[in-house]
Amino acid sequence: MNAAPAAVATAAVFIWLGMVLAISFLEAPLKFRAPGVDIPIGLGIGRIVFRALNRVEIALALVALAAIVVGRPTGSVAALTAAILIILAGQLIAIRPQLNRRTDRVLAGQHPPRSSMHLYYVGLEAAKVLTLAALGICLLVAG
């Protein structure tokens, strides 16, 4: 892969990885331990934070994808890029809308039954972290 596009893609991927680790695996669980933060308040905060994270993820994904395409990727870089885009799309298209509907119900004072969608989202976040790390390492080697 060409050096300049590889450097841009590497930066985007590692920034993205850091944001996912900080938000999904640090901020999200910790906010519910703060004094005075109950489930509706935590969900309201989480909705805002994850909406912002997802927008930044899309931007970083586009930057990384553009740099990777321009840089003529290796097979492993192409495969990992496709995997990360599929994971992100699955989260945004298949899972987030269902989580948002459940959050809407909780914020309206209802008590909907527990949903397994949150577990699927967390599972995809873990897969995304591993895939981003692998992609970042491959980009470092390829650059």
Rank of each mutant, 00 (worst) to 15 (best):
residue 1 M to E: 00
residue 2 N to W: 01
residue 4 A to I: 06
residue 7 A to H: 08
residue 8 V to H: 02
residue 8 V to I: 14
residue 8 V to G: 02
residue 9 A to M: 03
residue 9 A to W: 05
residue 9 A to V: 04
residue 10 T to E: 01
residue 11 A to Y: 07
residue 12 A to S: 00
residue 13 V to Y: 02
residue 14 F to A: 00
residue 14 F to W: 14
residue 14 F to G: 00
residue 16 W to F: 08
residue 17 L to F: 08
residue 18 G to D: 03
residue 18 G to H: 09
residue 19 M to S: 10
residue 19 M to P: 07
residue 20 V to D: 01
residue 21 L to S: 00
residue 23 I to N: 04
residue 23 I to K: 07
residue 23 I to H: 07
residue 24 S to N: 10
residue 24 S to H: 07
residue 26 L to W: 05
residue 27 E to C: 05
residue 27 E to A: 12
residue 27 E to D: 08
residue 28 A to G: 04
residue 28 A to V: 15
residue 28 A to S: 15
residue 28 A to M: 14
residue 32 F to W: 04
residue 35 P to W: 02
residue 37 V to D: 06
residue 37 V to G: 05
residue 37 V to L: 01
residue 38 D to F: 05
residue 39 I to C: 01
residue 39 I to Q: 15
residue 41 I to L: 15
residue 42 G to Y: 03
residue 45 I to F: 07
residue 46 G to N: 08
residue 50 F to Q: 06
residue 51 R to M: 02
residue 51 R to W: 07
residue 51 R to F: 05
residue 52 A to P: 07
residue 52 A to R: 11
residue 52 A to W: 09
residue 54 N to I: 02
residue 54 N to L: 04
residue 55 R to P: 00
residue 56 V to A: 15
residue 56 V to K: 02
residue 57 E to G: 05
residue 57 E to T: 09
residue 59 A to Q: 10
residue 60 L to F: 12
residue 60 L to R: 05
residue 61 A to S: 13
residue 61 A to W: 10
residue 61 A to E: 13
residue 62 L to F: 01
residue 62 L to Q: 10
residue 66 A to Q: 03
residue 66 A to T: 14
residue 71 G to Y: 02
residue 72 R to I: 00
residue 72 R to L: 08
residue 72 R to G: 09
residue 72 R to F: 05
residue 73 P to L: 02
residue 74 T to P: 01
residue 75 G to M: 09
residue 75 G to T: 14
residue 77 V to I: 12
residue 77 V to D: 10
residue 77 V to Q: 12
residue 84 I to M: 15
residue 84 I to F: 14
residue 85 L to A: 13
residue 85 L to G: 14
residue 85 L to N: 10
residue 88 L to M: 14
residue 89 A to N: 06
residue 91 Q to P: 00
residue 91 Q to G: 11
residue 92 L to M: 09
residue 96 R to E: 13
residue 96 R to T: 13
residue 96 R to W: 08
residue 98 Q to M: 11
residue 98 Q to G: 14
residue 99 L to C: 10
residue 100 N to C: 01
residue 102 R to Q: 10
residue 103 T to C: 05
residue 103 T to G: 03
residue 104 D to L: 01
residue 105 R to G: 04
residue 106 V to N: 02
residue 107 L to T: 10
residue 108 A to D: 13
residue 109 G to E: 13
residue 114 R to F: 06
residue 116 S to H: 12
residue 118 H to P: 00
residue 118 H to L: 12
residue 118 H to F: 11
residue 119 L to T: 14
residue 120 Y to P: 01
residue 120 Y to M: 14
residue 121 Y to E: 03
residue 123 G to A: 13
residue 123 G to N: 07
residue 127 A to K: 11
residue 128 K to Q: 06
residue 132 L to C: 04
residue 133 A to C: 04
residue 135 L to M: 03
residue 135 L to A: 06
residue 138 C to R: 14
residue 140 L to V: 09
residue 141 V to R: 14
residue 143 G to A: 06
residue 143 G to I: 00
